[in-house]
Design a protein around this nucleic acid. Structure first.
Length: 275
DNA sequence: ACACGTGTTATGCG
DNA sequence: TCGCATAACACGTG
């Protein structure tokens, strides 16, 4: 399930393999993935347009057409979306695979094709695969509700946005209107790296702790982009059903629902209240 | 059979 | 209206 790193890989793939190409046909027949557009609406807007750039904020990406004079194509991978162009893909880990950082090659069940763009050059189409259909393809997406991208937010901005409120810290950093791009796994990984408890009220952090979290989050994010996805994190493999062990100190980790999501943390290295 | 889930959002409540 | 919690969404997987 894609978080910022997987989406960034998908964006880079689109930039590399789809930008510069002109749209010949669009299959937007999946009315749920393409909502609120009616059938053919996205196709009518895009056919004849040329993709000129691919952008991303958080987990949302969009493709610019005709240098900005045409409509943007917004793409979101939801919980299980994957962009495939020819032999390359980016997004949700290979279906049925080990989820490692090996070259992605499998597009999965053909029934999971939810949105397709074909090009005039006759080359490989851009396909959104999504077994759960929680992904989206829309024209001119509204991104006004998103906070700054988690990888690029400044220190001062991070302090001001994250360090307030009574919600648990983990819920705060997963709130896409506060900072954009952090999902459940990346949140656990970054909090573990920063030695901060996910259940701390966000406003209880001082500036030094907020700075530590920002650095840990950025490091975890960049590492995940390089290695192929959030599932390559150091903590993630230890989020098993049984006896999760802190990969750093060996203590038995805690598993609880925080911010509505399953959360794992080390009670020794991420204590709350502070000792 | 049945609970769970790496995301988003409408709805409810104080 | 705001801040926060929860249910619902769709559907494959263990």
């Amino acid at each position: 399930m894609p978080e910022l790193p997987e989406v960034e890989r998908a964006r880079a793939l689109i930039e590399e393999r789809a930008v510069g190409r002109t749209v010949a046909a669009v299959d937007d027949a999946d009315g749920y993935v393409c909502r609120p557009h009616g059938p053919g609406e996205i196709a009518d807007a895009l056919v004849g347009r040329t993709f000129t750039a691919a952008y991303r904020v958080g987990k949302s990406m969009w493709v610019e057409t005709d240098g900005g004079s045409g409509p943007d194509l917004g793409l979101h991978l939801g919980m299980a979306g994957r962009i495939v162009i020819g032999e390359e893909s980016g997004g949700d880990p290979v279906y049925g695979g080990s989820g490692g950082s090996q070259a992605d090659h499998t597009e999965g069940n053909p029934a999971w094709r939810r949105f397709t763009v074909e090009f005039e050059d006759g080359g490989p189409p851009l396909v959104l695969f999504d077994k759960r259909r929680l992904g989206r393809a829309v024209l001119d997406p509204d991104l006004s509700h998103l906070g700054p991208d988690a990888e690029e937010i400044s220190r001062d901005d991070f302090r001001a946005r994250v360090g307030k409120g009574d919600a648990p810290l983990k819920a705060r950093i997963m709130d896409q209107s506060v900072i954009a791009g952090v999902g459940n796994l990346l949140a656990d990984e970054a909090l573990w790296r920063a030695h901060l408890s996910p259940i701390r009220p966000a406003a209880s952090l001082d500036d030094a702790e907020l700075d530590r979290l920002r650095v840990a989050l950025r490091a975890a994010t960049r590492r995940a982009i390089k290695l192929g996805g959030v599932h390559t994190g150091e903590l993630i493999p230890h989020r098993n059903r049984k006896d999760g062990i802190c990969p750093s100190c060996g203590a038995e980790m805690v598993r609880e629902t925080v911010g509505g999501r399953t959360t794992w943390w080390c009670p020794v290295e991420q204590p709350w209240p502070l000792p």
